[in-house]
Design a protein around this nucleic acid. Structure first.
Lengths: 125, 125
DNA sequence: TGCATATTTCCAGAATTATCGAAATGAGCG
DNA sequence: CGCTCATTTCGATAATTCTGGAAATATGCA
């Protein structure tokens, strides 16, 4: 992922309505949901929701498909994971001892490209 | 983490200069860096950088401390990890079979609060 | 104390974004 | 073929954000 794509994805999520939409779709899972349902569920105008869905789609965070006369949007889990990887890339460079451990966060803060050794107990100066 | 905090953190990162600053600090590790160095390294005016650092600090993504006559900013890895956890919360609900596996991403897409079973091979409808 | 340097605050202008009503588009169904 | 409903596009307005120059503040040192 490149910085422009990352900014696009982060911008897409950096807005309360859109973050709510995205989380709604994350919870909906691969089955996704229709704009009508989402708009009703979040209480925004259909045109507003359409604007937000387009933003999310442009950022690659959601995908759409058609089923009968409905459109169905769903979250793109791979894109989400790619964004997370980008954010933590090169963490700990030169100071691996201080890197956050998976146990502390529930997530690995370091992707495979910059593996994170077990934390020791030293403190930063 | 609550939605307002998440939006604040995402907004802070959703800007090219600021994302570059944050990544610079992530690479710098716990040792951090001074505004002067960061501004020179990224080619932005000191006042502009100060504005961005304040945004990142308000979002809790960076911390600052003083050393001699310098200020030193550093990335807050825990906050970053909390944001990632928030983004993937409740993923797969009701459809765990489709959840992205750690092996596919290099990251666990599912935090401990909604553990992600091994993916099977079924496809979404 | 007073100077030098690092950093932040204040200000104003330019650019971008969020919102929703009204109108246009698209897809199925009778 | 034309109706109907779901969704998107258009347009206009309001609000927010990014930017850097100038001035203010802070810190250490002579």
């Amino acid at each position: 992922m490149q910085i422009k794509e990352a900014v696009a994805a982060l911008s897409a999520l950096a807005q309360e309505s859109r973050l709510a939409v995205f989380r709604h779709l994350v919870e909906a899972g691969p089955a996704g949901d229709t704009p009508g349902n989402i708009a009703a569920s979040l209480g925004v105008a259909p045109s507003t929701l359409s604007f937000h869905l387009k933003e999310l789609a442009n950022a690659g965070l959601v995908a759409s498909r058609s089923a009968s006369r409905y459109h169905i949007y769903s979250a793109d889990y791979e894109r989400m994971a790619a964004l997370m990887t980008y954010l933590s890339q090169n963490c700990c460079r030169g100071q691996p001892d201080e890197c956050l451990t998976p146990a502390e966060t529930g997530l690995s803060a370091c992707p495979p490209s910059s593996p994170c050794p077990p934390a020791k107990k030293g403190k930063a100066p």
